[in-house]
Amino acid sequence: RSVMTEEYKVPDGMVGFIIGRGGEQISRIQQESGCKIQIAPDSGGLPERSCMLTGTPESVQSAKRLLDQIVE
């Protein structure tokens, strides 16, 4: 099973929602998708923050879907 890492951008203002209280939302996304998510510590003043998604292609797709649901 191939593991890939893909960069994915999320709106900087939504990072708090994505991480959730005490990190529980991001933990849930990682468990549900099976994908490891690393969010950049800051956006460098840009409107979007970079996330690194690491996992199988299916888990990366799944994580993107879950992130999109939060961001919308």
Rank of each mutant, 00 (worst) to 15 (best):
Q31R: 13
T5R: 13
L66W: 04
R1P: 02
S27A: 15
L66C: 14
G55F: 00
S59C: 07
M52V: 14
P41W: 02
T54H: 09
V3H: 10
C35N: 00
V3W: 07
G34K: 07
A63R: 00
M14V: 13
I37Q: 00
V71S: 07
C51F: 15
L67H: 01
D68L: 08
V71T: 07
L46Y: 06
G20D: 08
K36G: 09
T5N: 08
L66H: 09
M14W: 06
I26M: 07
L53F: 02
P41K: 10
K9W: 07
G16I: 04
G16D: 15
V10S: 01
D68N: 12
V10M: 14
D42E: 14
G23H: 03
G20C: 03
P57L: 09
Q38T: 11
D12C: 09
G34R: 07
D12M: 08
G13C: 10
R49P: 04
R49E: 03
V71K: 11
I37L: 06
E24I: 10
M4V: 10
R49K: 07
V3N: 14
K64W: 02
M4Q: 06
G34S: 03
S59M: 06
E24Q: 07
Q31T: 12
K64G: 03
D68Q: 09
L66V: 05
G55D: 00
R49G: 06
C35M: 00
R65C: 11
G55M: 00
T5I: 10
G16C: 07
P11A: 07
I19D: 06
M52P: 01
E24P: 03
E32A: 07
K64D: 01
V10F: 06
S27P: 03
E58T: 10
P57M: 08
T5D: 04
L67S: 01
V60H: 01
K9F: 11
E6Y: 09
Q31P: 00
V60D: 01
S59H: 08
K64I: 06
G20T: 03
I29R: 00
P41L: 03
Q25M: 11
L46I: 06
S59P: 01
D68H: 10
M4S: 04
L67W: 00
Q69I: 09
S33F: 02
D12H: 10
E7L: 11
Y8E: 01
Q31D: 15
M14T: 07
Q69S: 12
V15P: 04
K9L: 08
Y8M: 05
V3K: 15
T54A: 07
S62D: 11
I39S: 02
T5K: 13
M4C: 14
Q31H: 08
P41D: 14
K36C: 11
P57Q: 15
E6C: 06
S2L: 09
E48C: 04
V10W: 03
T5L: 05
I19H: 08
G34P: 00
I39P: 04
S27K: 15
I26P: 01
E32Y: 02
S27H: 13
R1N: 15
E48L: 14
P47N: 13
P57V: 06
Q69W: 02
I26W: 03
R28E: 09
G13Q: 15
P47I: 09
Y8D: 01
S50Y: 05
P41N: 09
V15Q: 07
Q38P: 00
S50L: 14
I70K: 11
G22Q: 13
S62L: 13
M52D: 04
L66F: 06
P41I: 03
I18A: 03
L67V: 04
P41M: 08
G13R: 13
Q25P: 04
V60I: 15
F17I: 10
M14I: 10
L67D: 01
C35W: 00
I70M: 12
Y8W: 08
E7T: 11
S50I: 15
A63G: 08
I29F: 04
K36V: 12
I19K: 12
T56I: 07
D68W: 10
S50A: 09
D12N: 15
S62R: 12
R65H: 11
L67T: 01
I70A: 15
S33N: 01
G34C: 06
K36A: 12
G20A: 08
Y8F: 13
D68V: 07
G22I: 06
M4D: 07
I19W: 10
E48D: 08
K36M: 09
T5M: 13
R21D: 02
I26N: 01
G34T: 04
V71E: 06
V71L: 09
S59F: 01
G13Y: 14
Q38W: 09
Q69M: 09
Q61G: 14
G13P: 12
T54Y: 10
C35L: 01
V71I: 07
K9I: 07
R65K: 13
D12F: 08
V60K: 02
K36L: 11
M52C: 14
P47S: 12
I29A: 02
Q30H: 07
V60N: 05
G34I: 02
G22R: 13
S50Q: 12
A40N: 05
A40H: 08
S50W: 03
G45A: 09
R21H: 05
